[in-house]
Design a protein around this nucleic acid. Sequence first.
DNA 1: GATCATAGTCGTCTGCCTGACGATAATCAG
DNA 2: CTGATTATCGTCAGGCAGACGACTATGATC
Lengths: 253, 253
Amino acid sequence: MPYDPSAFPAFAVTVDLVVLTVRRHALCALAVRRGEPPFKGRWALPGGFVRADEDLTAAAARELAEETGLHAHDPALPVPPNAAHLEQLATYGDPKRDPRMRVVSVAHLALAPDLPAPRPGGDAHSVRWAPVESLLDQEGAFSRDADLAAPLAFDHARILADGVERARSKIEYSSLATAFCPQEFTVGELRRVYEAVWGVALDPRNFHRKVTGTPGFLVPTGGTTTRQGGRPAQLFRAGGATLLNPPMLRPEV
Amino acid sequence: MPYDPSAFPAFAVTVDLVVLTVRRHALCALAVRRGEPPFKGRWALPGGFVRADEDLTAAAARELAEETGLHAHDPALPVPPNAAHLEQLATYGDPKRDPRMRVVSVAHLALAPDLPAPRPGGDAHSVRWAPVESLLDQEGAFSRDADLAAPLAFDHARILADGVERARSKIEYSSLATAFCPQEFTVGELRRVYEAVWGVALDPRNFHRKVTGTPGFLVPTGGTTTRQGGRPAQLFRAGGATLLNPPMLRPEV
DNA sequence: GATCATAGTCGTCTGCCTGACGATAATCAG
DNA sequence: CTGATTATCGTCAGGCAGACGACTATGATC
């Protein structure tokens, strides 16, 4: 029996990206300003339509490269210089989430090191890193950043919150926190990533003991650096381990 | 500017269900036999098209009820008798995953207690519970169950594997294992759930100490039962806690 | 009714991990 | 040289998990 296209409703499918990084001790997300209605002028997550013959992951990787110049990280290859971790987050399909039509959005989560270029390349429209608490602050009027006074477009606040929560929990039991660091980094830099993502202060001595004692988490490169001031610190690369057992413990309260 | 429907490709959107239960000490999944090509006669996961004005979760709950009579569990309400846990799993959108057309499937994971009716109601087509290792066994010919000789249709083996892995990890740090139990259950029954899902043997004494010592996990109902033989066991209900801290530990190896 | 098999429940002990925190080391700014 | 800063090592006590002994309460079997 031939396929009957009228037998099911047609949907538009998009990918939206939660791109996170750590800048100046704060967890930040990539936001773009909408140039078209609806929500014209409001900030939103980057994203776009999935093409007719494109896999979902490929669409997310394409959007990520367009907005940031970052390439999705293929776990099989050694980490290239401009690599970001990319994974599917969740799918949002409320019938009313886009007032124009029925859109199902497959959200993806990307974790990137702090980019040397604060203004990512790509289209001419406005793109910026913004601290997630500013973007999620419901009392937008009280946000320190007046430019972010309005909440995110569509259901993007919800998507961003889900992405942040995923990142917060995933660095507990995986080595993903290294995705926020450059290729070589110090224990202190890694600790500041945890502190920024979790929003807590961690004991430097216990943290050092824990991460250096977890097999496969960190590999010393031999070099040292003093870029943080103070005593020079050893440099490390991310080791092969992806799952941490026992996990890092997020402090209560 | 009005919306232009030709500006993006049209997709079909479906929900597929990984419905898991524990029967006779084995983790089992719900499978339906396909009556139409492609993959006619092969086993597949239950699922169907999302309707034009239907939320993704609602579509998954509707399919679940049609196939099993189970209702999705609203966390705000007390657990009704025929309730199952339902959550979104992941979305699968390979352009070639359905040979007929471009289909994006939003897979959901449902965890249900062992149903009194071994043959779930619903449509007249063939439905059964099958041990997940039979369904996932690549060497289908060696499967003990000759009826399951062929692999699952479409990419459903991958979806099922992802769902099983999600369930295995989620019972570590959440109280979701109780979703596999009836409303009242014993510590031993809960332990057999963990043993079936993880495929390991657990020490009854340490397990008992752990689950009864975790605040909010179990609430004694006062009753006892002897349905397992041996000394009567206390009956419990699931407590209010959803996240277990510290988590249950899955044995290595 | 005595015995056995089965399952549940309570304790003990030891080792490991964590959190708290003291102490020392190596750099830079004045 | 002194102080500030960061990194790193060490110590100690408390808690939790794994291994496992012991006892309890039922049904089945003789």
